[in-house]
Design a binder for these strands. Structure first.
Length: 198
DNA sequence: CGAATGATATACT
DNA sequence: GTATATCATTCGA
């Protein structure tokens, strides 16, 4: 079933980040549907988190979707090449978000390979936030889209990973964030066939 | 290991 | 309005 607003609008973004493991990310473009089981996430805890784009309450045209109600998509371009997909959580005005970093392909695999091109194998298809967004055809144009609609959404297929399969650690690529860089806000499934990095 | 690559934020004139 | 530094990464050598 599709996750509804009660899932997204809770305040504990770290808890939501953990719960998103095993959920199924779905996208539909031009009638074609692609789905994947989420296996890696990172939490970005709003104004008090130096690693977040919304740190200190920075509200700009780019970060505006993060301040909307939980259940909104926040997508932005990084390093001039990669689109990164985030799930906005909490109530309106609280810019919490969860970065989806990796997943296991479930449906529309051939289409994902076609979008990724060249050396994309089952292993590398969704390994990393930039790759995942590319495979799902998610770009900055999708930023601000509601996850309750039929363009991008998340389903619960009843998949549960055992507690000891879940690894927790510091987030990737946020060394600039000072002490906040060390926070254990990263969640991933061990021995995932589509890992990003250990 | 390091280049690629462009939108965005911020600091200027 | 213009300039410049920076970036929640990826891929190929």
């Amino acid at each position: 079933m599709k996750l509804d607003s009660t899932f997204y609008r809770r305040d504990d973004v770290v808890q939501i980040s953990r719960e998103l493991l095993g959920k199924v990310l779905c996208s539909r473009t031009k009638g074609a549907v692609t789905k994947a089981v989420i296996t890696e996430t990172e939490a970005y805890a709003g104004v008090g988190d130096r690693a977040s784009h919304a740190w200190g309450g920075r509200r700009t045209k780019r970060t505006e979707p993060m301040f909307r109600e939980g259940g909104t998509a926040y997508v932005y371009l990084c390093y001039g090449i990669h689109h990164l997909f985030n799930v906005v959580t909490a109530e309106t005005g609280t810019p919490h978000a969860v970065l989806v970093r990796a997943g296991q392909p479930l449906e529309g695999i051939e289409l994902m390979k076609k979008r990724r091109g060249r050396g994309a194998t089952d292993r590398t298809l969704l390994s990393g936030p930039g790759s995942l967004a590319q495979a799902f055809d998610i770009t900055t144009k999708a930023s601000g889209t509601s996850l309750l609609g039929n363009r991008i959404w998340i389903e619960d297929h009843g998949i549960e990973f055992d507690e000891n399969l879940i690894a927790t650690g510091p987030r990737v690529g946020v060394d600039y964030a000072g002490e906040d860089a060390a926070r254990p806000y990263r969640f991933l499934v061990r021995h995932d066939p589509a890992p990003t990095r250990e």
